[in-house]
Computed example of a mutant assay.
Amino acid sequence: MKPGELCSCGSGKPYAVCCGPLHSGEKTASTAEALMRSRYAAYVLKLEDYLRATWHASTRPSELDLAADDSKWLGLEVRAHVQPDETHATVEFVARYRVAGRGHRLHELSRFVREDGRWFYVAGEFLA
């Protein structure tokens, strides 16, 4: 992203102070919502290494091929962030995207776990 450009995660903050430090490894996400937003921005930027590093080992795919993905991500709306204890959280979100000129939306309830002070994406359930 260009210097000063707003982060694609929808926070309204510049990328350099939002998801940029997470993507570079300078910082780790302080909440599951922050991790989910950074993962959305990583899909926008096609940062496969970051996505794999933030995916829990128990559910992480053996490989990703975002280079072949022609999706254009259009926006993110976080609807809910629930953290019932120190190590578990869920984030409900809607992400809009376009493939071959056709609009789509992904409505998901994602599960996260915190291990050794770091949040990881575990899995998601598609919602209607």
Rank of each mutant, 00 (worst) to 15 (best):
residue 66 L to K: 08
residue 49 D to E: 15
residue 45 L to C: 00
residue 67 A to R: 12
residue 47 L to K: 14
residue 43 Y to N: 03
residue 69 D to G: 07
residue 84 P to Y: 05
residue 45 L to Y: 05
residue 84 P to K: 09
residue 48 E to C: 03
residue 39 R to W: 08
residue 90 T to M: 12
residue 45 L to Q: 11
residue 83 Q to P: 05
residue 67 A to Q: 14
residue 42 A to I: 06
residue 36 M to N: 04
residue 68 A to S: 15
residue 85 D to P: 08
residue 63 E to T: 03
residue 69 D to H: 10
residue 49 D to F: 01
residue 41 A to I: 04
residue 68 A to Y: 05
residue 59 T to L: 10
residue 42 A to Y: 05
residue 63 E to W: 04
residue 64 L to D: 04
residue 83 Q to H: 10
residue 78 V to P: 00
residue 56 H to S: 06
residue 51 L to F: 10
residue 69 D to W: 15
residue 64 L to V: 02
residue 53 A to C: 02
residue 58 S to T: 12
residue 70 D to R: 15
residue 74 L to A: 13
residue 62 S to P: 04
residue 62 S to W: 01
residue 75 G to R: 09
residue 77 E to V: 13
residue 75 G to E: 06
residue 63 E to I: 00
residue 53 A to S: 15
residue 62 S to L: 13
residue 40 Y to E: 05
residue 85 D to F: 07
residue 57 A to T: 09
residue 44 V to C: 14
residue 73 W to H: 12
residue 89 A to E: 07
residue 74 L to R: 15
residue 75 G to M: 05
residue 75 G to D: 10
residue 90 T to K: 11
residue 49 D to H: 12
residue 90 T to Q: 15
residue 36 M to P: 01
residue 60 R to D: 06
residue 69 D to R: 11
residue 44 V to R: 07
residue 78 V to F: 09
residue 70 D to M: 06
residue 40 Y to L: 03
residue 55 W to R: 09
residue 68 A to D: 07
residue 43 Y to R: 01
residue 43 Y to P: 02
residue 52 R to P: 00
residue 40 Y to M: 02
residue 64 L to T: 11
residue 90 T to L: 13
residue 88 H to C: 01
residue 52 R to T: 04
residue 58 S to C: 02
residue 52 R to W: 03
residue 56 H to I: 11
residue 79 R to M: 07
residue 55 W to V: 05
residue 50 Y to E: 00
residue 39 R to F: 07
residue 62 S to N: 15
residue 51 L to E: 04
residue 80 A to E: 15
residue 41 A to E: 15
residue 57 A to E: 08
residue 35 L to E: 01
residue 42 A to C: 08
residue 40 Y to G: 00
residue 51 L to R: 09
residue 73 W to A: 06
residue 79 R to L: 13
residue 61 P to S: 10
residue 60 R to Y: 07
residue 56 H to K: 09
residue 78 V to D: 07
residue 41 A to C: 15
residue 83 Q to D: 06
residue 42 A to N: 10
residue 48 E to T: 14
residue 46 K to L: 04
residue 69 D to M: 11
residue 70 D to L: 07
residue 50 Y to V: 01
residue 66 L to R: 10
residue 35 L to W: 03
residue 81 H to V: 11
residue 56 H to E: 09
residue 62 S to I: 09
residue 45 L to H: 05
residue 79 R to D: 01
residue 80 A to C: 03
residue 65 D to E: 14
residue 35 L to P: 00
residue 60 R to T: 05
residue 66 L to T: 03
residue 40 Y to I: 01
residue 38 S to G: 12
residue 51 L to D: 08
